[in-house]
Amino acid sequence: MQLSFRATQRLYRALTAAVLVFAGIFALFPLVWTGLTSLKQNSDVITAEMQYLPHNPTLENYFELWSRKSFVTLFGNSVVITVLTVSLCLLVGTSAAYAFSRYRFTGRNAALVGFLLIRMFPMVLMLIPLFIIMRNLGLLNTRIGLALAYTTFLLPIATWMLKGFFDAIPPDLEDAARIDGATRAGAIVRVVLPLAAPGVAATAVLTAIAAWNEFLFALMFTTNEASQTWPVGLHLLVGEEFNLPWGLLSAGGIISILPIIVFFVLAQKSLVRGLMQGAVKG
């Protein structure tokens, strides 16, 4: 049976809407539950009878979290480390990705896979050698040290992703710029990067999320409370032999996605719109 063009379109639209609604619910339900839990006292979470909406909604958890321990310090550390990591990854990763994308040299494929080696090697054997390296370089307990450690582990991802995006930019665009008198470096800055902006933004988001949420390195490479990060602080809310403060933990989760939401709202107009809607649309 041949459906008319109209009918097909309608069917597609319905399917699309259904997929998006499902995706939205699946993605959001746990977050909504986290949000609801953050408004409950623990006695309203640990109940025999399920409480959907908080009976006694309270913002207490947020206030307590914020006044507690050094959560402001932790938050600040994480922000600085994330910004440093993303900057380093983009700077170094762009440069390497461009070389991988535009040049053919012996050992290129081996080098590409070699870049990934650092991610393939199980973390369990990395901890002690890395700790020793960090200690010898005097990088324990420093934000730049953690940012460097994150960068080395996120660089392969950033490089691979950026290479993919650079590959998609036709080289003749660059050539055109160079005929106009730009150097290769000039062409990268003026042509390649702007065209790859959505890809660069996607890479930035990816590295930012990874750096923002990293826990193990942050725990291992810090030895005083002043240098700990936000995920470590969140982790410390959960003790093995203590009641789990569900409300506090949920509030922590909500607080930790706030900066990213803010970032998205602020950047919506420039970077992220490009990232989400495709490179050069009209």
């Binding site: 901890l127 002690i128 700790f131 020793i132 200690r135 324990l140 193990l216 725990l219 291992m220 030895t223 005083n224 409370e225 982790h235 410390l236 959960v238 003790g239 093995e240 032999e241």
Partner: peptide, 20 residues
């Protein structure tokens, strides 16, 4: 320094072997 119980031995071992 508060160290989570579940990661205590990981952190402690790393620090001892790493001489710190």
């Amino acid at each position: 320094l508060t160290v989570p119980n579940s990661e205590f031995m990981t952190k402690f071992t790393t620090s001892v072997v790493g001489n710190a």
